[in-house]
Design a protein around this nucleic acid. Structure first.
Lengths: 158, 158
DNA sequence: GATGAAACGATCATTTA
DNA sequence: TAAATGATCGTTTCATC
């Protein structure tokens, strides 16, 4: 269901261009990659249908929303059993501070990226929403100085 | 420069709607939040001008691009000095596998989210691009089972 | 994959509350 | 000051080549 999809050089140009600017109009995109708008529309639709393009995400500045304290929370679950995982994931995703959640190999089972109003809000989140739960054995909190996004994601070179 | 911006309930509705679907047309968005399209356009432009909306990002499925092995790399820098930070950040952002990079408090100085083709590619990344550098004291690699995104980010309740 | 036409949406000057 | 109206302009989209 999630195998790699054959992509030609036009597809790759489209993906690179849209990852640089997801709001390019179809017309601009077509001009950028050098094909007709109708063809371009077909290509983009196919990239969506095949699941290469998953969605379009708004990026907001957490600081502008009074959430300037970002942190990564490393969470250990004990026992680390399937019936406990799903409710925990849902609980985390329901917290308004949650930006991303990872389920991981390694000593820590989860990593949560959160954006809180201040240290008080972060403390409340850790103590009341995480360590208060029986299955949560441990939470380590690391503050985020800065965060960068990688460039366009493309298939590995041959 | 990054203080919170006063936002009324219409702004919040716009932000919530666009975070659910950043490709809503202005007309649809206006209907969703219950205002005229022209007003809606003004609002969105203001949210961009004030820096609340930072950009629009394409979300792609790494597995569909032959990058199905995602990992988090915990990196310790020694010494952790400013002149070493910027070149390292640039080096990491230049790697095609890099999706996100965090600079952190705590025992590990950086966390890198990467999407690699397979274990070989991941090993190469860690050994040739990270631990090969003098300033990198240590890299821990944790694989990603699954990743979720949080819901819309809005200001804390009063 | 391109062309061209019809339909639709974005945008802005103007008007109104 | 903020929002709505309505005309213009441009883009998307689809049948056809």
């Amino acid at each position: 269901m999630s195998r790699a999809v054959p992509l030609d050089s036009v597809d790759l140009k489209i993906l690179a261009a849209l990852q640089n600017n997801a709001r390019l109009s179809n017309k601009e995109l077509a001009a950028t990659v050098g094909i007709a708008p109708s063809t371009c529309l077909d290509r983009v639709n196919r990239l969506r249908e095949t699941g290469v393009i998953v969605g379009y995400q708004l990026r907001v500045d957490p600081a502008k929303l009074d959430r300037s304290l970002e942190a990564l929370l490393y969470v250990r679950m004990q026992p680390h059993r399937r019936p406990l995982v799903e409710p925990f994931v849902e609980h985390v995703l329901n917290q308004p501070e949650t930006r991303e959640l990872y389920h991981l190999t390694g000593p820590d089972d989860f990593l949560i990226h959160v954006a809180a109003e201040n240290a008080n809000a972060l403390q409340r989140l850790v103590l009341d929403e995480l360590t208060a739960r029986d299955e949560i054995a441990l939470v380590h909190t690391n503050l985020v100085f800065q965060r960068w996004l990688g460039g366009p994601l493309l298939p590995p070179e041959e």
